[in-house]
Amino acid sequence: MFAGIAHNLTIYLAMSTVFFVFGLFTILTRRNAVGVFMGVELVLNAAAINFVAFYALKADSAQSSPWLDGQIFSLFIIVLAAIEAAVALAIVLRVFGAKKNIDPDQVMELRG
């Protein structure tokens, strides 16, 4: 029943890689802080997919745990992503208040 997922692990990994790369690309190229955070969400979700996929791979073997660790971890990632979005949007609002602009390149007070 669960063999299907294990044998198709590559598909899941490939998908999460695609997510990760798209996410990274978004983070690196956006000129809008909100867009950057969207990219971060993609990267986080790529990680979540990997957790579940590797859990499923392990599920058939003898050391499988009954606690669905992979899924639980994904849930934590989702929760963390939600919190991160809340904090991030608050920061974006403050930055906008200060600079009337949310281009990450404009926020460079910490430059050397």
Partner: peptide, 21 residues
């Protein structure tokens, strides 16, 4: 050293990330 490395620390966060990647 600082004079030469300060150009790296340009405050553009996406540049940092690009370097890391």
């Amino acid at each position: 050293l600082g004079a030469s490395l300060r150009t790296l620390q340009n405050g553009k966060i996406q540049r940092y990330l690009m370097v890391a990647a």
